[in-house]
């Protein structure tokens, strides 16, 4: 019997053990990170969903100024708390655009009236198409887009009050 056959199992075992040790040592990250970070925003043109609020297209986020594109929905509970933080960011001069995922006009109007409205524009992504093309897997998520329309940063989950300095510095870098 050849030496290769006899010693191969030990090699396979070592490989597997190494992978399992790595897995035990590295905390599991269940977030799905977008591969679009560093690339231009994919072209999209979303219709308006609430009256008096302009629609959102990919051209609207590449205006020479950094934009915060917030993916949210009126049916999303963490989004309610996030709106307050977004209002604070708006107060610091941040351009915030919203992509409302699978939402209804009446529900969304109610949501904005109740919780506040930090958005300059809101596009209605009724089938999650744009959300998926951005590489987002849930709500809320936010993308920082620089003045040339390139995605610079992805925030998975709600932006908390403690994240504000970090978000502001990322926006500064994207300037």
């Amino acid at each position: 019997m050849s030496r290769a056959f006899r010693f191969a199992p030990i090699g396979v075992l070592l490989l597997i053990i190494a992978a399992l040790v790595w897995r035990l040592a590295t905390p599991k990250d269940n977030n799905v990170h977008s591969t679009m970070v560093g690339k231009p925003v994919p072209a999209f043109d979303l219709p308006s969903i609430v009256p008096n609020k302009p629609a959102l297209s990919s051209a609207d986020v590449a205006t020479g100024q950094p934009h915060l594109v917030n993916i949210f929905a009126s049916w999303c509970v963490p989004c309610i708390t996030e709106v307050k933080v977004l209002k604070a960011l708006q107060g610091r001069g941040v351009h915030i655009d919203g992509i409302a995922v699978r939402d209804r006009p009446a529900d969304l109007a109610d949501f904005l009236a109740r919780n506040g409205d930090p958005y300059e524009r809101i596009g209605s992504d009724s089938q999650s198409d744009v959300q998926i093309s951005l590489g987002s897997s849930g709500v809320p998520e936010s993308f920082i887009v620089d003045g040339k329309g390139v995605i610079r940063f992805q925030q998975i989950g709600a932006i908390e009050a403690s994240d504000v300095p970090m978000i502001l510095s990322k926006l500064e870098q994207a300037r």
Partner: peptide, 28 residues
């Protein structure tokens, strides 16, 4: 539970590793 996982993995590595080594040495 990383502690339990590590313990079980160590047992697995020792037992299977020892058996494979024994096989490699004795099979000829």
């Amino acid at each position: 539970d990383p502690q339990r996982g590590t313990f079980l993995l160590a047992l697995l590595a020792i037992y299977v590793g020892a058996a494979f080594i024994l096989f490699a040495v004795r099979a000829p």
